[in-house]
């Protein structure tokens, strides 16, 4: 259930000026892509554009899937907030999509996924009774439950503490294996540990073009890259320097 994506001519105009235009990128089937850039450069807008979410700004996008079928209903969305519905118990949050589409619920899959994210026995808990890390794990389980070949995540692990975040990296990279993932993040370490390729949205040298996309390779090692991997610190220092450069150029 892998699905590669090719995007071309992505453009968003916000409040009368161009956020970016002529953006192209390739998301290989089953690969993990991290999207980085300074605040306000339009990372999240680009992600929303690709996910097909409602946008009030002027926008344009040519999006091609490898199988030629539309992407609609084949994208799972995960945001910075866990977006759990407080009036649904943990397990009911997983099959929200089934209820919204009037499809039968897959109880077996829901239980399996909750066990996989370490929440066995909490199926009937209210979301408000869970910790931030637990809630984000439920959100991850809900994202997986959709069984979508493409997963788009907007800073999914930024609202939890550092240790929980590292645990979530392990969990997410294991469970999202085989999916095509696009993840917006502010965290260079997170990007380097998880991604096969890094896309940096930075100010374009062309006037009136807004931002442009720079592609950097990932570390190419096993995912997630272990914290004590010797290649990690220099790569991180390099990436931070790069992000800082792009900020100064702006």
């Amino acid at each position: 259930m892998s699905l590669g994506l090719t995007l071309n001519n992505a453009r968003i105009d916000y409040a009368g000026h161009t956020l970016f235009r002529d953006i192209s990128a390739r998301l290989e089937a089953g690969s993990w892509t991290a999207l980085l850039g300074r605040s306000g450069c339009g990372k999240s807008s680009l992600l929303r554009l690709l996910a097909g979410l409602e946008m009030s700004d002027l926008h344009q996008l040519d999006l091609a899937t490898d199988d030629g079928q539309p992407l609609t209903d084949r994208v799972a969305w995960m945001a910075q907030q866990d977006l759990l519905l407080p009036w649904r118990r943990v397990i009911d949050n997983l099959w929200l999509g089934d209820d919204l589409r009037r499809r039968p619920r897959n109880r077996k899959l829901a239980h399996e996924l909750l066990a996989a994210v370490g929440l066995e026995g909490r199926e009937q808990a209210w979301p408000d009774a869970l910790s931030g890390g637990q809630r984000q794990r439920v959100a991850l389980a809900r994202t997986l439950y959709q069984q979508a070949p493409v997963v788009m995540m907007d800073e999914p692990f930024s609202a939890v503490d550092a240790i929980t975040r590292l645990e979530l990296h392990d969990l997410a990279s294991r469970l999202l294996k085989g999916r095509t993932v696009l993840m917006v993040t502010h965290d260079p370490l997170e990007a380097l540990r998880l991604a096969d390729q890094l896309l940096v949205l930075r100010p374009s040298s062309l006037p009136g073009h807004g931002a442009e996309l720079e592609r950097l390779p990932g570390l190419g090692a096993a995912r997630p890259v272990p914290l004590d991997d010797p290649a990690l610190p220099p790569a991180q220092a390099q990436l931070i320097a790069r992000l800082r450069d792009s900020e100064e150029a702006a």
Partner: peptide, 28 residues
Amino acid sequence: QQGWLDLAHTLGASPWRRLIHIQLPAAL
């Protein structure tokens, strides 16, 4: 919450189902 509406959108909700499952309980 806009996030809930986004989620409902990616989950393919019709306006009616969105009202029943998201907006009404949120307004309760």
